[in-house]
Amino acid sequence: MIKNNILCIKLRVISISLCFVAGLLVSAAQADKLPYVSQSKIRILAGPGETVSGEITIENPTAESKNINLYLEDWHYLHGSSGAKEFVSPNSMPYSACPWISFTPRNIQVPPFGKQKVSYSVNIPAGAEGARYASLFFETMVSKGVPLLKSGSYAGFDINIRVATLFYVEVQGTVFRSGQLNNLKVEPSQAVGGGLDINLDFANTGNTDIATLGEFILKNKEGAVVARGVFNNLYAFQHGKGALSSTIKEMIPPGVYGLKITVDLGKATAEAGMGNGPVITKEAVVTIGENNRVIEFGELS
């Protein structure tokens, strides 16, 4: 009987301890839980003189209160048309949407495990046309380089992080997507293993941003496909330019071939659920000799 009681007490102590330790561990895990960000891209299509409003919620799933600063900046694509962006001062770019966007509040204190809403409004001026771009940033401090030494040397950096909500604002009834493909080159590949490189230039001749999805097929005289591939995704503002490239890795038998290139200009709008295309299709004749030697290639038409 006594043994049973002792065993019972031991079991209770063990289980309560387990609960306590497990509880601590779960708390610690929640404290370390990393916040998430959704709605990192907003594409707006509205007419001149119209105002579009929305709300963004900022959530703090950590156990610490977070101070977050909100502000707008402009952005542009970095050289190379890969879609990589650089952010610059508001109103410094010719296609800045910053003057059209307002939001409130500008600074928020999000309590532990709490949420805060931010209201934004995009006012498109009467007479506006084309497309504008901006980024709304949410910035918070991670750590501060503080320990000041009385002697010796110390170098420290404050660390801040920010996430962007990119705005693409298109003025309904005025935007059009169009592009040109030029300067086709088919030449031996520089890559290890040989093959053929296909390069061409792209120019955005519309008045809004374009993100492309491109592909090619190479057909022989009988219409059989002997090679196919995809081009790099290309991103360009209105009047922007870039290069499309792809590689045929296979060894192509000597002969005359038809090269068909298709470039969909509507990748961005498709991702936003705003429709597909337009699509550019161009063809050229390519004559290939022994060992993938390019004898000649014609103009795109």
């Binding site: 980024s135 030494l149 992080i161 996430v163 962007a164």
Partner: peptide
């Protein structure tokens, strides 16, 4: 010798 300070800002954005 002294205390030298600066700041680093990291930005996450979509392509």
């Amino acid at each position: 010798p002294g205390n030298y300070l600066s700041g680093i800002l990291y930005t996450l954005s979509e392509i």
